[in-house]
Design a protein around this nucleic acid. Structure first.
Lengths: 161, 161
DNA sequence: TATTGTTATACTCTATAACTATA
DNA sequence: TATAGTTATAGAGTATAACAATA
């Protein structure tokens, strides 16, 4: 993608249709901006990796959390994923229409649903997780050796409440 | 906002209307997911810090890059910020209507605009940067002492191309 | 009265294609 | 032909309020 600075830009004219490296000023030391850019990059990779499964980040996260917490309540899922309950209803509708998850009513509190994966959901998630793990291995290779654990811990510190 | 665990939840029934900590399964070691959550958290803080200036992340980033690169071309700005040029036109329109930036036509290539901050834009940015710096100092305090530089370097490694 | 989940709505963000004017 | 910038549009993501059913 990146063309090296032509050595013979001499006489003609620069005609720099190539990308220009900008001074990022105070953004160069901005944790918020760096997180934004890094998250954008990994999200792009996520979409590539999950294209075959038609799963977006929030959908994949939902399936993973259900698998790890069978029977979890809808409200706890949406809170853990930082998704408004109003928006989460539609997300779950979509996964249920695709026969990946199942809402089971709870007799002891009939306002609540216990959410479970279907067999199809388990199967799709298993394959999606393999793609996810390959993607994550690629991210780890971008970091210094044995730096991942500390990096994840620092991200968790930033992710307060 | 957060209710402390009532000490007399004793006999009655748990009635856990408080939030439940879920097992995050393979997301616990997912760099992509951790970045997503951390970026979400810092973006929330950004909106609080910038409410007084009515600047969203992309708008603030735009002003900062213009200040650091006066006369920059619109295309280079949108590329640096990873914003589609089609969407960036409207963003700049908004900043121009608010008299914060100015598009100057370039005689040597009349397709291009050279983007500059107005006096108002410089003034607003100066104040916004102070709020931004305070916010960033808050983020740094969440990290171990002297860990910021390495953390930023690792974020930059993830942000490829 | 408070909580779980739903519906409706609006606003922002992102992505794509088609267009103009220039080169 | 290719590039800079614009317009239009559609799809996601996000936020808020109001509601029904239940506790």
């Amino acid at each position: 993608m990146r063309k090296k600075q032509s050595a013979e830009k001499v006489a003609k004219r620069p005609d720099k249709s190539t990308s220009v490296k900008l001074d990022t000023g105070p953004l160069a030391t901005s944790i918020g901006f760096a997180l934004r850019m890094a998250s954008f990059a990994t999200t792009q990779r996520f979409h590539e990796a999950m294209r075959a499964f038609d799963l977006r980040p929030a959908q994949f996260g939902t399936l993973v959390l259900i698998a790890a917490n069978p029977g979890v309540r809808q409200r706890d899922l949406s809170e853990a994923l930082r998704i408004e309950k109003a928006n989460f209803a539609g997300l779950l509708d979509n996964l249920e229409r695709r026969n990946l998850v199942e809402r089971r009513s709870e007799p002891e509190d009939r306002r609540r649903y216990a959410i479970h994966l279907t067999r199809d959901g388990q199967g799709l998630l298993r394959r999606a997780c393999r793609a996810h793990d390959r993607m994550e291995a690629g991210f780890q290779k971008l970091l210094p050796a044995r730096a991942t654990k500390q990096f994840l811990a620092n991200l968790a510190r930033i992710t307060v409440e």
